[in-house]
Simulated assay, not measured.
Amino acid sequence: MDAKMENQLELVEKSYDKTIEFGKKGINLYNDLPEYITNDPDYPIFQKMIIEGGTSDSDRKEIRDYLSPNTNMKFIDLGCCLNLMFRGYDKWPSTYHGVDISSKTIQLLDEFVTKKQLPIGSLYCGSIHEVPFDTNYFDIGACIGVLEYFEKDFVARAIIEAHRIIKPNGKLVLDIPDIGSPECRIMMIIEEHLGRPDKFDLSFQEFEDMLKNYFEIDKKEKFGPMIQYFLSCKK
């Protein structure tokens, strides 16, 4: 991994660690934004997103409907954040495995799992481009709100790794930023302020060309500042 990629991973890690630490104190950093952001003409779009369901699209009904989790399935949540706690993934019948770069996130999830005595598979602190799971291990997966932080080379490695660990015909939902949309523009400004700048540098066509050797695109949908892809694993 080159130094630029390592530096970006470190920025994302530190930013989410900070978000967790402030969250434990009851402080939501999205509610404490500087005036240059709150006075931005696109800021009301961000406020509308918050009212309509927050800044995360991990808990969309469409994701669960597409992945159709059942008790015989292993599910990998790549860049899991706190989905297990706040996005209903603890209610899924599939066996949950989470990966996140933030050690504070994994620590909090560990505490949550212990307190609730949840029968999950594993929690792993590390980057999604290199995970400690066997080939063809997972039936279903998600990678929501992650790829926007990274440039082409990392995105390619993350897709190859996701393809490796998901079974033939397994399903994956992931998203990328809808660059150029006002929703994405204001989110990128906010994410940079939070210390985790978006670095995504692919057009839709370039991204889909990257996918085609690994996944079949069953459908794609715009949601807020992101485009979600619903994929079947080709092997």
Rank of each mutant, 00 (worst) to 15 (best):
K74G: 00
K74N: 08
F75V: 03
F75L: 11
I76Y: 01
I76T: 03
I76P: 00
I76S: 02
D77W: 03
L78E: 00
C80V: 02
C81S: 15
L82I: 01
M85Q: 13
M85D: 11
F86E: 04
F86T: 08
R87C: 04
G88T: 00
D90K: 00
D90L: 01
K91A: 10
S94K: 14
S94N: 14
S94Y: 13
T95S: 14
Y96I: 05
H97M: 05
H97S: 11
G98M: 02
G98S: 10
V99I: 15
V99A: 09
D100P: 11
K104P: 08
K104G: 10
T105V: 15
D110N: 11
D110K: 14
F112H: 03
F112T: 01
V113T: 09
T114V: 07
T114R: 09
K115A: 06
K116G: 04
K116L: 08
L118S: 05
L118D: 01
L118M: 09
L118A: 07
S122F: 10
S122P: 06
L123D: 04
Y124C: 05
Y124G: 09
Y124I: 06
C125P: 02
C125H: 10
C125S: 12
S127W: 06
S127M: 06
S127E: 09
S127K: 05
I128M: 11
I128A: 07
H129Q: 15
H129D: 15
H129L: 14
E130H: 14
E130T: 11
D134T: 10
D134H: 05
D134E: 13
N136K: 08
N136R: 04
N136G: 02
Y137H: 10
F138I: 04
F138C: 05
D139C: 08
G141F: 08
G141E: 04
G141K: 02
C143L: 13
I144M: 10
G145F: 01
Y149M: 05
Y149G: 01
Y149K: 02
F150N: 00
E151I: 10
E151G: 13
